[in-house]
Design a binder for these strands. Structure first.
Length: 597
RNA sequence: GCGCUCGUAGCUCAGCUGGAUAGAGCAUCGGACUUCGAAUCCGAGGGUCGGGAGUUCGAAUCUCUCCGAGCGCGCCA
């Protein structure tokens, strides 16, 4: 993993060769200078009968080179035929160039998997650039509920993916500890404090947080302050109680996250923006005002129906419309405090000032309408030097055997994240949250995800990994020296006669393994960790298929009793599958078990 | 009314950022256990990619326009 931080992969290699050929042709053929090669792709053809790889080079370049695609394809093909990796070249359709690679390429690809071990699939596309991924950021007013699961898992997996792809990633949590809601929290905790001192408080008043989880906070307050807070005015005790309560809530949230194997690097307090040496929100507003992006003005009334206490007044506005938003946005509330948006601008500016140019925020679906204004603000505040990609995670519909799980609206009675994790386990939650595009709604069936059957994708993939290990266990009869340790085993198998793997099902698997680094890069660039989950599902599927073929065709079994060399070659393939499954599952944060028991 | 997201097989969803005859799983039907774990696999049927127009060698993918669903629309975060 040390000296192989950026192993080139097969597709990148072939693409480089195609680029070289086109570059040479450009020079000789007198194509326009600076012709754009970036649109050339090398990809696996949809139909395997078209060969191992296909490139669109001729079609993409034909216009600029002032040639017919087919003629250009001929010229490119002629040169590619001389390439050491390429067995044959065909031209098809409007100008596709189909490449069949030499068999040795696939054997080498498998050896690469085995030699690189954990590093296989790692990429340098990130070029060690700093990326800030902000996710969860749930209000510190109570335990996390199921609704938070998806964003949490998505953000965490995306961060791991980016890290695996060579970015320098910071996982961040924005603590909303400055708004009105944490004051409500503090008042609720204060009641629990009085209760802990022996007062009878009765039902929690409407508008406060009724959950039992604040009782321990009340006890802590009573233990620390005895009766002293009770005699103070609210303006005195509130900041004290708030701090204790928020810290207690964050402790709870951290524990909830830990149950999903999530830990973040940076917990950033909203309050610290205004409580520090300088008021960063004020500074940011001044900064924008100096640029002419902040002014005093009036807004038209909201369109979504009558707003209760709407009053037409002059207010401090950010000129969001100058940066692509629909209306200008207020920065100050009528009571003189900052709007959430104002803090948020300062917060994102703070990220920029900490050196981040690539920002990713993971938000829930209900925040979709907020994207434009934040992007506008970031444009203004960083002069367009930073980019923010907002990933919206859609709702999760919680089901049990197809029936919706009832969630009472009465607060304090929701389904917590912890309950779900305790019931089905972290692996099931994580995998299923990622087995879908982030912007599509997701059904999560508590009964189905712990089923041990192929209907359950988590199980299916994990079973693939376990099945590979089962093969290793049995193989020791034929190959007694097969090491137990994964790394040692991979090294041991790396010199197997893998060119003996020639069955179509085996070659499919080799091709799939060779695709892994390319998939990782594409998923990282697109910020789409779900691609890994689907890839792993496909890989497991092909592995299960090959396994079963050995039942009808004994010569295809992994373990051949009288042929240690072939057994070793097959085990090398199994090892390749097992390593890649383990690698992909690790990026997703899902355990790769050696057996399923 | 405006904005964002989505619409792909009966159901749940992929579709590698514009590529070739649009793919899986479930369900339905038909097959395979004397096995390295059948906790699995093989096969069949099933599609106007919501409708229409445009962009070009080429569109599920990009643009426009309708239809439908979800979310949001000063001083909540």
């Amino acid at each position: 993993m040390v000296d192989q931080a950026s192993p080139p992969h097969l597709f990148a290699d072939v693409l480089a060769r195609v680029h070289a050929v086109c570059g040479a042709l450009a020079k000789e053929g007198g194509w326009p200078a600076g012709i754009d090669l970036s649109r050339i792709v090398v990809e696996p053809p949809r139909d395997p009968s078209h060969g191992d790889m296909a490139t669109n080079a001729a079609m993409v370049l034909a216009k600029e080179a002032r040639t017919k695609p087919r003629d250009l394809a001929e010229a490119i093909a002629a040169r590619l035929r001389a390439d050491e990796l390429i067995a044959s070249v065909d031209i098809a359709g409007p100008g596709f160039i189909n490449l069949a690679l030499k068999a040795s390429v696939w054997s080498d690809a498998l050896r690469t998997v085995l030699r690189q071990g954990d590093a296989y699939g790692r990429s340098a596309v990130g070029a060690a650039e700093k990326v800030n991924v902000e996710y969860v950021s749930a209000n510190p007013t109570g335990p996390m509920h199921v609704g938070h699961c998806r964003g949490a898992v998505f953000g965490d997996a995306l961060a791991s993916l980016l890290s695996f792809a060579g970015y320098d990633v910071t996982r961040e949590y924005y603590i909303n500890d400055a708004g009105a809601q944490v004051d409500v929290l503090a008042r609720s905790a204060f009641l629990r404090y009085r209760e802990a001192l022996g007062e009878h408080i009765g039902e929690m008043p409407e508008g406060l947080y009724p959950g039992d989880y604040l009782k321990p906070v009340g006890k802590v307050l009573a233990g620390t302050f005895a009766g002293t807070l009770r005699d103070q005015s609210e303006s005195e005790w509130l900041p004290v109680v708030r701090l204790v309560a928020v810290n207690a809530m964050m402790e709870m949230i951290r524990n909830d996250l830990a149950s999903l194997k999530i830990s973040q690097d940076c917990f950033f307090s909203e309050r610290s923006l205004i409580d520090g040496d300088i008021d960063q929100v004020a500074a940011t507003i001044d900064f924008l005002r100096a640029k002419g992006d902040v002014y005093e003005g009036r807004l038209p009334p909201p369109k979504g129906g009558p707003v209760e206490d709407y009053e037409d007044r002059e207010q401090t506005l950010f000129r969001a419309t100058a940066y692509g938003d629909d209306v200008d946005r207020p920065l100050m509330k009528s009571d003189g405090s900052y709007t959430y948006f104002a803090s948020d601008i300062a917060y994102h500016k703070n990220k920029f000032d900490r050196g981040f140019r690539n920002l990713v925020d993971v938000w829930g679906a209900d925040h979709g309408g907020y994207i434009k204004r934040v992007q506008a603000a970031i444009k203004a505040v960083t002069s367009g030097k930073a980019t923010l990609d907002v990933k919206i995670v859609q709702l999760v519909k919680l089901l049990r055997n197809g029936e919706p799980v009832k969630m009472s609206k009465r607060s304090g009675d929701f389904v917590t994240l912890r309950e779900v994790v305790d019931e089905v386990g972290s692996d099931a939650v994580r995998f299923m949250m990622l087995f879908r595009k982030n912007d599509a709604v997701l059904d999560f069936d508590l009964a189905k995800v712990i089923e041990q059957s192929k209907d359950n994708a988590v199980f299916y993939v994990q079973y693939g990994h376990a099945r590979g290990h089962s093969v290793f266990r049995n193989a020791r009869e034929v190959i007694p020296g097969l090491p137990e340790d994964a790394e040692a085993r991979a090294a041991y198998l790396a010199d197997a006669a893998v060119e003996r793997l020639t069955d179509p099902a085996e070659l499919d698997l080799l091709r799939r393994l060779a695709l892994y680094p390319r998939m990782i890069e594409a998923a990282a660039v697109a910020h789409e960790p779900h691609r890994i989950a689907f890839y792993l599902y496909d890989l497991a599927s092909e592995f299960h298929a090959l396994w079963t073929r050995g039942r009808d065709l004994p010569y295809l079994r992994f373990i051949i009793n009288n042929d240690a060399d072939m057994t070793k070659a097959r085990l090398a393939l199994v090892q390749g599958v097992v390593s890649v499954l383990a690698s992909g599952l690790a990026v997703l944060g899902v355990h790769a078990p050696d057996e399923m028991r």
